[in-house]
Design a protein around this nucleic acid. Structure first.
Lengths: 145, 145
DNA sequence: ATAAATAACTACTACTTATATAGACTTTAT
DNA sequence: ATAAAGTCTATATAAGTAGTAGTTATTTAT
């Protein structure tokens, strides 16, 4: 399951992606608008910023805005920042590989291949879905899906 | 990430699936052989039994064995018993549907469709991978994969 | 009939991770 | 100088996962 952190991150990015008129947007405003606990959101935005997805400005008139075009921010990248691995077992993870505790011999592990396939199928979707896509789906006629 | 419970469940089913010579197999033996905490395994086996996947017999000479052919026990079913939903968001779950806390309008939710796609891609694999497949992969030449 | 072997069931404890909060510090605009 | 923001680190709380304990029920062997 996606953590709340990830859901909040996506919501924040979507809100910032829509906020094209008058950036930057302050944490407090964003928190209120999206109903996210303020201090929790603060940490999440910081992570996204440190990963290069957000631009921030301190001081009066400061706030947050996207540091990339919404169409160049993919869900997979966000998930990896906030939740870590995409794979369901550490030994099948591309970016967060770890040996499974329970596994004595990875070479003959009967489930690894399956979960690598699951990971790849998941990646295929998440690497092609951007914040812009999410925004498009929010605002467009739901019947088209 | 898969829980240990799920990994232990798969290991137990695989072990029982291989144990065709002299069933039934006792919890204690299974726990030792697979290095699973005995009392924890006990609970897991009980769940699998109550879900119809295992047959059990009490008393001397009793123990556990598969209640179905290993080729008819699919990973997806095991995951659902031990970990619950396959989907990454509750609102995209087929068998454990729940409204997302953070979601105010599911119809215009921008991520739901994506995570339904992810779920379907995952299901496609997990509904076609059986305990028999896992056993086959364990014992066969790893290079074929 | 009794004892021994085994699973069934329930309750509880410990540990870990996720979620949320607090407060002091830094930068910028006016 | 002051106020308005973000930055950073530490801590508290809640929830979930993993594991343990003990008691009961059933079956088999003698």
């Amino acid at each position: 399951m996606l953590s709340k952190k990830t859901k909040y991150a996506i919501k924040a990015l979507v809100a910032l992606g829509k906020n094209i008129e008058n950036p930057p947007m302050q944490i407090v405003r964003l928190a209120e608008q999206e109903m996210i606990p303020r201090k929790f959101l603060e940490q999440i935005l910081l992570d996204l910023r440190n990963a290069g997805y957000l631009y921030s400005k301190k001081g009066a008139g400061g706030g947050y805005s996207l540091n990339k075009d919404a169409k160049d921010i993919y869900l997979v990248d966000i998930l990896r920042i906030t939740d870590g691995p995409i794979a369901m077992v550490p030994c099948a993870s591309l970016k967060f590989y770890r040996k499974c505790d329970e596994c004595h011999d990875e070479v003959t592990c009967g489930i690894r291949k399956t979960f690598i396939d699951v990971r790849d199928a998941t990646l295929k979707i998440l690497t092609h879905t951007s914040i812009a896509d999410v925004i498009a789906r929010e605002t467009s006629d739901p019947l088209q899906f």
